[in-house]
C-alpha cells in the first residue's frame, strides 16, 4: 500500500506517546528503583533481587503464580472454547452467553462477597452460611475451612473465582472467531466422512488458532499480575500469596519501593516467552497474506 514516511507515525503517534508516558517511563523508573534500598535511599546492587528469590513468602508467591498461569489459563480458555463451539448449536445461545458473561460485569467487591457465601466456614452444629459446607454437612460430613486448606485446595478455590469471572472474556472472543469460520469448510469435511470430533480437530481448531493465541496471551498476561481476587479474599494469607499482592504490600504498606520494584521487574522478565510467541504469530499472519 501507498504509505509515506510520515503517515504511519500520524496513526501510531498518539498511542506511542501515551504508552511511553503512562507505561514505559514508569517502567524505567521501576527498573531504576529496583537497585535501591527502601524509598531510593542508597544503592543496593542486586540485594533486592537476592531478597526476592530467598524470601519464603515471595517464593510461595512464585509457586502460586505458576499455578495460576497454568490452571487459570487452561480452564478459562477451554471453557471459553467449549462454550463458543457448543452454544453455536443450540437455539438458546444468547441467554447462556449472557449468563456466562455476567460475572465479568460484577464488581470485585460484589464477587468477593458472593464467594464468601460459598466458601464460608461455621462450626459444626451451627447453621452453615457457606454453600459448600452446607452441602458437605447436608451429607453428614464435617465442615471444612476451604480457604485455609493450604497449599493446594485454597489456591485452586481462589482460581475458581477467577475462572468464573474471566471465562466470559474468552467465550466472547472465541465465539466471534468461531462464527467466522466459513461453514462450507466444516460441511466439506463432514461430506468427506469426518465425524464431529474430526471436524473439530481438523477444521475448527486450526481456524481458531490465531484467536486462541490472542485469548491465551491475554489470560497469561492478566494472570501474571493477578491481584484483586487474592487481595479481597485472603490477602495472601494461608499460603495464597501472589506476586502482585506481594508487590502492593511491599510498596504501599511496608514502603519498600526497592523490593516492590524488583517484583515488578521480574513480572516484566516473565513476559518475554509470551512476547517471543506473539512475534512468531505476528510473522506467521503476515507471511500468509
Amino acid at each position: 500500500m501507498r504509505t509515506g514516511r510520515v503517515q504511519p507515525w500520524l496513526f501510531i503517534g498518539p498511542a506511542v506517546g501515551l504508552l511511553v508516558f503512562f507505561l514505559v517511563y514508569p517502567s524505567i523508573y521501576t527498573i531504576f528503583l529496583s537497585f535501591f534500598y527502601g524509598m531510593g535511599e542508597s544503592f543496593a546492587g542486586w540485594a533486592n533481587y537476592v531478597h526476592v528469590f530467598t524470601d519464603r513468602t515471595t517464593l510461595t508467591a512464585f509457586r502460586n503464580n505458576a499455578l495460576w498461569v497454568v490452571v487459570f489459563t487452561t480452564f478459562t480458555v477451554s471453557f471459553g472454547l467449549a462454550f463458543a463451539v457448543l452454544l453455536d448449536r443450540v437455539r438458546y445461545e444468547k441467554i447462556i452467553k449472557s449468563i456466562i458473561f455476567i460475572p465479568m460485569a460484577i464488581s470485585m467487591v460484589g464477587a468477593a462477597t458472593i464467594w464468601r457465601f460459598i466458601y464460608a466456614f461455621r462450626p459444626e452444629g451451627s447453621p452453615q452460611v457457606g454453600l459448600l459446607n452446607a452441602i458437605v454437612t447436608g451429607f453428614g460430613g464435617q465442615p471444612v475451612g476451604w480457604l485455609t486448606e493450604a497449599p493446594w485446595l485454597n489456591n485452586f478455590l481462589l482460581i475458581v473465582v477467577g475462572i468464573w469471572m474471566w471465562t466470559g472474556f474468552c467465550m466472547v472472543v472465541l465465539s466471534a472467531a468461531y462464527k467466522n469460520i466459513p461453514r462450507e469448510l466444516m460441511e466439506a469435511a463432514r461430506i468427506d466422512g469426518a465425524n464431529e470430533w474430526q471436524v473439530f480437530g481438523k477444521v475448527t481448531l486450526p481456524s481458531l488458532k490465531p484467536a486462541l493465541a490472542v485469548v491465551a496471551t491475554t489470560m497469561v498476561v492478566f494472570v501474571l499480575k493477578i491481584f484483586d481476587i487474592v487481595f479481597v479474599m485472603t490477602d495472601g494469607l494461608f499460603g495464597t500469596e501472589v506476586l502482585a499482592n506481594r508487590m502492593y504490600k511491599e510498596m504501599f504498606l511496608f514502603m519498600d519501593f526497592g523490593r516492590a520494584s524488583t517484583i515488578a521487574v521480574i513480572l516484566l522478565l516473565l513476559i518475554i516467552p509470551v512476547m517471543v510467541f506473539n512475534i512468531r504469530q505476528f510473522r506467521e499472519q503476515e507471511m500468509l497474506r
Binding site: 504508552l19 507505561l23 514508569p26 492478566f222 502482585a244 510498596m251 513480572l267 513476559i271 509470551v274
Partner: peptide
C-alpha cells in the same frame, strides 16, 4: 508492537 505486548504486564500500581 512487541513493546505494546510487554506493557500489558506492567502493574498499574507501579505507575
Amino acid at each position: 508492537f512487541l513493546l505494546t505486548v510487554a506493557l500489558l504486564v506492567v502493574p498499574l500500581q507501579m505507575t
